[in-house]
Amino acid sequence: MADRIIELRNIVFRYEENQEIPTLNDITFHVKRGEWLSIIGHNGSGKSTAVRLMDGLLEAESGQILIDGQILTDNNVWDIRRKIGMVFQNPDNQFVGATVEDDVAFSLENIGLPLPEMKARVNEALQHVDMFEFKTREPARLSGGQKQRVAIAGAIAMRPKIIILDEATSMLDPEGRFELIATIQKIREQYGMTVISITHDLDEVSLSDRVVVMKKGQVESISNPQELFSRGDELLSLGLDIPFTSAVIKELKKAHFIFDENYLLEKELENRLWTLLSKK
Rank of each mutant, 00 (worst) to 15 (best):
L113Q: 11
V12Q: 08
L265Y: 13
Y191R: 08
R52Q: 12
L228S: 13
H200D: 03
A50M: 07
G41T: 11
R159V: 02
Y191L: 14
E251T: 09
G144P: 05
K250H: 15
L252H: 09
D173N: 01
D103F: 04
E261S: 11
V87N: 13
F88D: 01
L24A: 07
N43L: 15
E189T: 05
M54G: 02
P174T: 02
L277F: 12
I65V: 13
F134Q: 13
I65W: 07
V205M: 08
S237Q: 15
K135I: 11
F257G: 01
N123S: 14
R81H: 05
K267V: 09
F259H: 07
E270T: 11
M158F: 05
L37Y: 02
R188K: 15
L126G: 04
K32S: 01
V31S: 01
D102P: 09
A98S: 08
K32T: 06
E17S: 15
I164E: 01
D233M: 14
Q190E: 13
D68Q: 06
I164Q: 02
S143L: 14
G112E: 10
N76A: 06
Y191I: 08
I5Q: 08
P114T: 00
E17T: 14
F259S: 04
W78K: 15
I65F: 15
D166K: 13
V87T: 08
S230L: 03
Q127P: 05
Q218V: 14
D166V: 05
A140Q: 10
L276T: 00
G34Q: 12
L277D: 03
D173Y: 10
V195S: 03
V96W: 04
R272D: 13
V211W: 08
G56H: 05
G97R: 04
V51H: 06
I80H: 07
E234A: 08
R149M: 12
A60S: 07
Q94E: 06
I6E: 03
E59K: 14
K47R: 11
L115T: 10
V248R: 06
I184K: 00
L264T: 11
R81F: 05
E266C: 03
D55N: 15
G56Q: 07
S62M: 05
P116M: 01
I222K: 00
Q89N: 11
